[in-house]
Design a protein around this nucleic acid. Structure first.
Length: 863
RNA sequence: GCGGGUGUGGCGGAAUGGUAGACGCAGAGCAUUCAAAAUGCUCCGGCCUUUGGCCGUGGGGGUUCGAGUCCCCCCACCCGUACCA
C-alpha cells in the first residue's frame, strides 16, 4: 500500500478488535474498573455531528483508560420512548414501535463505522419490554416504599384536539396542530416524592468534586432552599371558609412595606369568588388560557384583578390591604398567595405602578436615602442598609439580620412561623400518551388503586393501536384496559397513563451493569461496575436529567436495587458543547425563507441553480433549518479517523464547535502526512536500514544530539498529550501531536530514534484515530494490538529543560530577555538583569524601585 | 422575566495572575512540475516615522509590579425554565 487508505484499513481493524473481543467489558478482580458513559441518544433517525463528537470524546477516555490498565465498561443504548415516534405515526402512518426500531437499526449502522470501543453486547432500548418491565417492577417497589403518590396537577389542554399538550407543543398560547387557544386543566397525576430529598440532593452536591461548578450551581438554584416566614392575613368580609389567607415570604423584614395581597387565579378563594363574579371569572379564564411553562408566565404582561376584598395587616388592624388576583402567581408554588412589597421587588413595583398601589420604602442605602422610583431597591441580603420601617432590629442592619429578627419577632407574637422551603417540586411522571412505559397499576372499584403483581410484568403496550386521531390510544383501546384486580380478582381497569421518558433515562446507567438480568440490577454487577466514573453529555441536561437520576439512585438504594455507594451515580461529569453550522437561506416567491443543506451550496451559491444564498451565522444544527452536516458523508469520504480527529481538534470540548468542510479536509491531510511519515520509516527499515538500526541499539537511548533532541520532544509530547486527555483538553492534545509531527518530519535523528518516535506517536494517537494507529503499529512491527498496549510514560529526566527564556519587563512591558538555567537562584538572576543593556539604559545609573523575579517565569523591573 | 454560561487575528482556537495569538485553516511568496494537482519550505494581528515604537483579548471602570485570566457595571449570543429529548 502506498497511500493512506481509510476505506481499507478501517474495516480491517474493526474486525480485528471484534475478533479479539477487545471491547467486551469483563469483571477482572485484579484490575481497577472504569465505567465511561456518554448520554445515550434518542433514535431520531440519523446520527448527527453532535453524536460523533460526544461519542468520540467518550471513546478517547475509554481507550485511554483501557491502555492505563483499567477494566473498562463502555456501553451504548437508546432512549427510545417519546413523542416524536407518535408524531411520526400521526403524520406518516405506521407504528411508533416500527419507526423507533428501524431508526435504531439505521443509527447503529451509522455508528459502527466510527470504530467506537463500545461493548455492543450490552445494548438495549428503553422501549424493549425487558427494560420497561424492570422499570415497572421498580415503580411497584417505589410505591411500596412511599416514594410515589397521586395528586391533581395542571396540564396544557387542547380543547379542539381534546388532548394534553407538551409545553413544546404550545406556541404563543395556541396548540401546535389545532391552533386553538390552550387551556389549563387539572388532572389526577402520578408523582415521585423528589421534594422529600430536596435537602439531601442539595447537601450532596458538595461532595461532587468532579462535576462542573456551573452544573452544581444550577442545581442548587433549582432546588432553591429558602428560609422564610409562613403566615396568614385575616380577611374582611370574605366568603365562608376564607377568613385567613396563608402566604409564604422570604422577606418578612419588609412586612411594613406591604401594599397588596396577590393570589393565583387557581387559588381556592379566586375560584370561589368567580362563581358569582362574571368579570373575575373572565379574568381568571384569561389567565388560564396560557401555557403552563414558567417562562411564558414570567414573560407575560403582569395583570391583576381587584377582588374588592381586603385583609388586615397583622401589626396594625386599622391598616387594610387589597386582595388582587394576579396572573403571575402560580398555585403550584408555595401557598399560591403572596404579599407584595413594591419598594423591594421589581415585579411587585411594576404591578403597584400599574394599579396605583402605594410604594412604601422599608429601607434605603446607607449613604443615599433616595426613595424608590421606577426601580425597586434590591441590594444583596448581606449588605448593610438603613431601615425606615424596622420593627424588631436596629436602624442599621443587613437584610439577613433583619430577616432572622423578623422571624423571631413574628413567632413570639403569634404571627406565623419560620420555615425552610424548597423551590423544587415533586416530579410529575404521568403522561397521557401511548409511546412510554405503562404505569403498572390497576383501578379496582372495590380496592381502589392497586399495584400490579410482579409476576404479571411486563405490562406490555398493545400493538393494535391507531394514530388517526389525537389523544391517548390506550384510553380508547377496546380491551387493553380490562384486567383482574391483583388484590381481589374482580374485573378492573388498567391505568392508561405512561411514564415520563425521564424515568427511562434515570436508571439506564445501572441497567448497563447487568443488561439481561431478571431483576432491574444485580448486587454483584452493580457492586463491581457502579459508579459511572466518567459521564459525558450536553449541558442542556444540567438540571432535569441529572437531578432526576440522582433522585432515582437514592430511590433505587432505598428499594434495594443499588448499593449505598451508588446514591451519587456519576463520580465525574463533563458537559460538552454543541456542533453548529451556518444556515443557508433563499426566499420563495412570497418572501418566506427556504433553507438549503450545506452540501447543496458552493461559494455562497446554490450548486443546482447558481442562485445566491443568504448566509446566517452559526446556529445549533437542526433539521428544520437544514444546517446539518451528515457525518455519514464525512466518514465515507475521508474515513472515521478523519471525522474523529476533526471533532476533537480546534474547539475545546465544553464549547460549541463550528463544522467547516475545510476543517475536515485539513484533518484528513494531516493523517495522510502521519501515514506517509510512518511509511517512510518503514521503507527505510525494511530496505537495508535494519543493520543501521541494530548498530544504533534497538530502542535504547542513543547518544547523538539529534536523537536526544527528538527524544526530549517525544517525552514532552507524551506528557502534554496525557495531560490533555486527563483534563478533557483534547484540542490541546491534538495540537501537541501536530507540533510533534512537524518535529519528526524535520529531525535528522537516527532510524532507531525515529522508529521509537513514530510508534509512540501511534500509541498517543490511538484513542483519537484508532485505525490509523493500529496500521502504523503493525507496519513497524509492534507486538499485538495498539489498543491493548500499555500507555506510554514520559521519562521525567527528559522533561527538564536545560535553559529557559526569562522575559525582562520594565514597568510591566517586555523590553528584553535572558537565557538562564531554570533553577538559577534569584540573586544571580537579579545580577544578570541589572547588567542587561535595556535595563541599564532605562535605569540611567539609578536603582530600580522594585525588582520582581518569578523564578523560571519572568522578571519585572519597576522604575 | 429568572438561573447558568460564553465573547481573543480574516477563521477555529492556545495561554498555573507572568513574553497574548501555540497548533490548525484561509491567504501570500518560493521550490518541485512542460503544466496542474499533490507535496515541501518561508511569511502571515493592526498602525507608525520599521535594527525601533504605539495599539490590541465584546464595551466601560477597578485591584495588582504585572490582567485574556480576579472584582464591579453594561452589551451580544447560547443553554435551562419542570410535558422536547
Amino acid at each position: 500500500m502506498a497511500r493512506f487508505a481509510p476505506s481499507e484499513i478501517e474495516p480491517k481493524w474493526q474486525q480485528a478488535w471484534e475478533k479479539a473481543g477487545t471491547f467486551t467489558a469483563r469483571r477482572e478482580d485484579d484490575k481497577p474498573k472504569y465505567y465511561v458513559l456518554e448520554m445515550f441518544p434518542y433514535p431520531s433517525g440519523r446520527i448527527h455531528m453532535g453524536h460523533v463528537r460526544n461519542y468520540t470524546m467518550g471513546d478517547v477516555i475509554a481507550r485511554y483508560k483501557s491502555s492505563c490498565g483499567f477494566s473498562v465498561l463502555h456501553p451504548m443504548g437508546w432512549d427510545a420512548f417519546g413523542m416524536p415516534a407518535e408524531n411520526a405515526a400521526m403524520e406518516r402512518g405506521g407504528h411508533p414501535r416500527e419507526w423507533t426500531y428501524s431508526n435504531i437499526a439505521v443509527m447503529r449502522d451509522q455508528m459502527k463505522p466510527l470504530g467506537l470501543s463500545i461493548d455492543w453486547s450490552r445494548e438495549f432500548a428503553t422501549c424493549d419490554p425487558d427494560y420497561y418491565g424492570q422499570q415497572q417492577a421498580m415503580f411497584i417497589d417505589m410505591m411500596e416504599a412511599g416514594l410515589v403518590y397521586r395528586k391533581n396537577a395542571t396540564v396544557n389542554w387542547d380543547p379542539v384536539d381534546m388532548t394534553v399538550l407538551a409545553n413544546e407543543q404550545v406556541i404563543e398560547g395556541k396548540g401546535w396542530r389545532s391552533g386553538a387557544p390552550v387551556e389549563r386543566r387539572d388532572l389526577t397525576q402520578w408523582f415521585f416524592r423528589i421534594s422529600d430529598y430536596a435537602g439531601e440532593l442539595l447537601e450532596a452536591l458538595g461532595g461532587l468534586d468532579n462535576w462542573p461548578e456551573k452544573v452544581k450551581l444550577m442545581q442548587r438554584n433549582w432546588i432553591g432552599r429558602s428560609r422564610g416566614l409562613q403566615m396568614a392575613f385575616s380577611t374582611i368580609d370574605a366568603p365562608e371558609g376564607f377568613d385567613r389567607i396563608e402566604v409564604y415570604t422570604t422577606r418578612p423584614d419588609t412586612l411594613l412595606g406591604a401594599s397588596f395581597i396577590g393570589i393565583s387565579p387557581d387559588h381556592p378563594l379566586a375560584r370561589a369568588l368567580e362563581q358569582d363574579n362574571a368579570a373575575l371569572a373572565a379574568f381568571n379564564a384569561g389567565c388560564r388560557r396560557m401555557g403552563t411553562s414558567e417562562e411564558d408566565l414570567e414573560k407575560a404582561d403582569k395583570k391583576g384583578y381587584d377582588t374588592g376584598l381586603r385583609v388586615r395587616h397583622p401589626f396594625d388592624t386599622a391598616w387594610e390591604l387589597p386582595i388582587y388576583v394576579a396572573n403571575f402567581i402560580l398555585m403550584d408554588y408555595g401557598t399560591g398567595a403572596i404579599f407584595g412589597c413594591p419598594a423591594h421587588d421589581q415585579r411587585d413595583l411594576d404591578f403597584a405602578r400599574k394599579y396605583g398601589l402605594p410604594v412604601l420604602d422599608t429601607f434605603v442605602a446607607q449613604n443615599n436615602g433616595q426613595p424608590v422610583g421606577n426601580e425597586a431597591f434590591v441590594p444583596p441580603k448581606s449588605e448593610t442598609v438603613r431601615w425606615l420601617r424596622a420593627y424588631a432590629w436596629d436602624e442599621i442592619a443587613t437584610g439577613e439580620e433583619a430577616i432572622e429578627a423578623a422571624i423571631r419577632f413574628c413567632e413570639s407574637n403569634g404571627v406565623g412561623q419560620g420555615v425552610t422551603r424548597f423551590r423544587l417540586r415533586d416530579w410529575g411522571l404521568s403522561r397521557q400518551r401511548y409511546w412510554g412505559c405503562p404505569i403498572p397499576v390497576v383501578h379496582c372499584g372495590a380496592c381502589g388503586v392497586v399495584p400490579e403483581k410482579k409476576e404479571n410484568l411486563p405490562i406490555r403496550l398493545p400493538d393494535d393501536v391507531t394514530f388517526d386521531r389525537p389523544g391517548n390510544p390506550l384510553d380508547r383501546h377496546p380491551t387493553w384496559r380490562d384486567c383482574a384486580c391483583p388484590a381481589c380478582g374482580a374485573p378492573a381497569k388498567r391505568e392508561t397513563d405512561t411514564m415520563d421518558t425521564f424515568v427511562d433515562s434515570s436508571w439506564y446507567f445501572a441497567r448497563f451493569t447487568a443488561p439481561r438480568a431478571a431483576t432491574p440490577t444485580t448486587p454483584d454487577e452493580a457492586g463491581y461496575w457502579m459508579n459511572v466514573d466518567q459521564y459525558i453529555g450536553g449541558i442542556e441536561h444540567a438540571i432535569l436529567h441529572l437531578l432526576y437520576s440522582r433522585f432515582f439512585a437514592r430511590a433505587m438504594h432505598k428499594t434495594g436495587h443499588l448499593p449505598a455507594k451508588a446514591i451519587e451515580p456519576f463520580d465525574a461529569l463533563f458537559t460538552q458543547g454543541m456542533v453548529t453550522h451556518e444556515i443557508y437561506q433563499t426566499r420563495d416567491a412570497k418572501g418566506r425563507p427556504v433553507y438549503h443543506l450545506p452540501e447543496e451550496v458552493e461559494n455562497g451559491h446554490l450548486k443546482a441553480t447558481g442562485e445566491a444564498v443568504e448566509i446566517i451565522p452559526s446556529a445549533k444544527m437542526s433539521k428544520s433549518k437544514k444546517n446539518v452536516v451528515d457525518p455519514v458523508n464525512i466518514i465515507s469520504g475521508y474515513g472515521a479517523d478523519t471525522a474523529r480527529w476533526f471533532v476533537l481538534s480546534d474547539s475545546p470540548p465544553e464549547r460549541d464547535v463550528e463544522w467547516t468542510a475545510a476543517g475536515a479536509e485539513a484533518a484528513h491531510k494531516h493523517l495522510s502526512r502521519v501515514w506517509r511519515l510512518a511509511d517512510g520509516i518503514t521503507q527505510e527499515f525494511n530496505e537495508g536500514g535494519i543493520a543501521a538500526y541494530e548498530a544504533e541499539g534497538a530502542g535504547a537511548a542513543t547518544e547523538g544530539e539529534d536523537d536526544l533532541t527528538l527524544r526530549r520532544a517525544l517525552h514532552r509530547t507524551i506528557h502534554d498529550v496525557t495531560m490533555g486527555i486527563e483534563s478533557f483538553g483534547f484540542n490541546t492534545s491534538v495540537a501537541k501531536l501536530y507540533a510533534f509531527t512537524n518535529v519528526l518530519a524535520k529531525t535528522k535523528a537516527g532510524l532507531a530514534a525515529r522508529r521509537e518516535a513514530i510508534m509512540t506517536m501511534a500509541q498517543l494517537m490511538a484513542p483519537m484515530t484508532p485505525h490509523l494507529a493500529e496500521e502504523i503499529w503493525e507496519m513497524l512491527g509492534g507486538a499485538g494490538l495498539v489498543a491493548e498496549s500499555p500507555w506510554p510514560r514520559a521519562d521525567p529526566a527528559l522533561l527538564i529543560e536545560e535553559t529557559v527564556t526569562l522575559p525582562i519587563q520594565i514597568n510591566g512591558k517586555r523590553r528584553s530577555e535572558l537565557q538562564v538555567a531554570p533553577d538559577m537562584p534569584k540573586e544571580e538572576v537579579e545580577k544578570l538583569v541589572l547588567e542587561d543593556d535595556a535595563v541599564r539604559k532605562a535605569l540611567q545609573g539609578g536603582a530600580p524601585k522594585k525588582l520582581i523575579v518569578v523564578p523560571g517565569r519572568i522578571v519585572n523591573v519597576v522604575i
